[in-house]
Each structure stands twice: as structure tokens, then as C-alpha cells.
């Protein structure tokens, strides 16, 4: 049958669902082993964080899209959690091969890492759905009440109070760890990257400034070429 925009969008969502294990709402045996190998087991903290962020996400999704859509928000969050666990496991497999270590206690107890990784997984889910929403015209009512736009990037950063610079850190590793991402989704993540690099990371309060200050202090002896006018 001919490929219609609706059919293409439905295929993207089905592909995303199909690539995630149906039992993936919990860490796999392999991922649970990484958790257990840690000096401090992060399992409980990971679970608690997901519960807290899940409630926050559903609430904010309902506020943005409408109270009748809270259930859709929960569905998207559940899909995001499955992608989060899958990508985390693949990242740790890669890091184990690269560094020849199995104890990732520091990384796996870093709340910012988990929040950034989950935000990236949710952005992939949201972009897949939003793409379909625009294509099938559900939100395209031509007015200013364009609900689909409200949950697009950088919406997720505000929901999780996440610094754009921290979100930026996970994007490349995420794409490397999840080879089944469609070209459209990769392009979307690259657009997020560019937005962060060009604008969002330079807003007041960004951790980037503190990092630059530290870098300047530690490398004060190095000769830095003066910038061109």
C-alpha cells in the first residue's frame, strides 16, 4: 500500500515500541548486575527518582496538553523508562569494554546523569509522537492553541529543572548506544544539540560558566591565542 503520512507516523511509533523489550519497565538482569557491582548500589535511588520524575512529568504534561491527556503522558513516560534502561545498559556495556572496569558506582549514583539520560529518552519518545501529531493534523488547528508545540524541546528541561549543558552531555553517547534510532530522530537530537550550543547553554545560571571559570583557573599558565575581532 502507498505510504501516507499517517501510516509513516504509526510505523515510527510501532518501531519504537517494538525495539523495546516488553519487560523493560525494570532493569534487565545485566543492568541489575551493574547496579549490584557498585560500591553503593543505586537500585533504590533509581527507582525512587523514576517515581518522582514520573509524577512530575504526568502533571506537567497534563498542564501543557490538557487534563484529559494525563494518561497519554503516563504512557509516554513508561515508554521513555524502557528506552532509558535499554540505553543505560548499552552505555555501560560500551564503557566496560573501553575502560575494562565493572564498577560504575560514581556514574550510577550521579543524579544528573540519570535525569539527563531519562530526559533524552523522553525527548526521543516525544519527538516520535509529536512528529505523528503534526503529520496527522491532530494539533494542526491553525490557531494559537497549538498544544503539540508546548511539549517540544526544551520543554523537558524545564519539567526536570535540568541544565541544558547536562542534557547536552548525553546526546552523543545516546545516539551511539541506540543504533535503531531513525534518521529523523537523530536529526531532531542534533537540532536540540545546536539549540543548546548556540543559545540555551549561555543563559544566566548555566553550569557552563562555572566550568569555564575552573578551566581558566587550572590552565592559567597556558598561553591562549587572543580571539580575532
Amino acid at each position: 500500500p502507498p505510504q501516507t503520512p499517517i501510516r509513516a507516523a504509526m510505523t515510527s511509533i510501532q518501531q519504537l515500541r517494538g525495539e523495546l523489550p516488553s519487560s523493560g519497565d525494570q532493569p534487565s538482569t545485566n543492568l541489575a548486575t551493574y547496579f549490584k557491582n557498585c560500591t553503593v548500589d543505586p537500585s533504590q535511588a533509581v527507582q525512587k527518582r523514576l517515581e518522582m520524575l514520573g509524577q512530575l512529568f504526568s502533571q506537567k504534561f497534563g498542564e501543557a496538553v490538557g487534563p484529559r491527556c494525563v494518561a497519554y503522558g503516563r504512557q509516554r513516560f513508561a515508554l521513555g523508562v524502557r528506552l532509558y534502561y535499554k540505553v543505560m545498559e548499552e552505555m555501560l556495556n560500551s564503557e566496560e569494554k573501553r575502560l575494562s572496569v565493572q564498577n560504575f558506582s560514581k556514574l550510577l549514583n550521579d543524579s544528573t546523569f540519570h535525569t539527563s539520560l531519562l530526559a533524552c529518552a523522553l525527548e526521543v519518545v516525544m519527538a516520535t509522537y509529536e512528529e505523528s501529531s503534526f503529520k496527522n493534523g491532530r494539533y494542526s488547528n491553525g490557531g494559537s492553541d497549538h498544544a503539540g508545540v508546548d511539549v517540544c524541546f526544551p520543554w523537558i528541561l524545564n519539567v526536570f529543572s535540568l541544565a541544558a549543558f547536562d542534557f547536552y552531555k548525553v546526546i552523543e553517547s545516546f545516539i551511539k548506544a541506540e543504533p535503531t534510532l531513525s534518521k529523523d530522530i537523530i536529526k531532531h537530537l542534533e537540532t536540540c544539540e545546536n539549540l543548546i550550543m548556540e543559545r540555551i547553554a549561555w543563559r544566566t545560571g548555566s553550569p557552563l560558566f562555572e566550568l569555564l571559570k575552573q578551566e581558566q583557573e587550572s590552565g592559567a599558565a597556558e598561553q591562549v591565542e587572543a580571539p580575532a575581532s
Partner: peptide
């Protein structure tokens, strides 16, 4: 077609980006 440009070096990974050795 669209190809992502990977900027990280082979010796860099998510551990370094979150300051973990």
C-alpha cells in the same frame, strides 16, 4: 539522508563527561 557527526574521541565516553574515572 542524515548522518550524525560524532565529535567524541574514542578515548572519551559518558564516564568522562560526568567526571567519573
Amino acid at each position: 539522508s542524515h548522518d550524525y557527526h560524532f565529535g567524541l574521541e574514542d578515548h572519551e565516553g559518558i564516564s568522562e563527561l560526568f567526571d567519573c574515572d
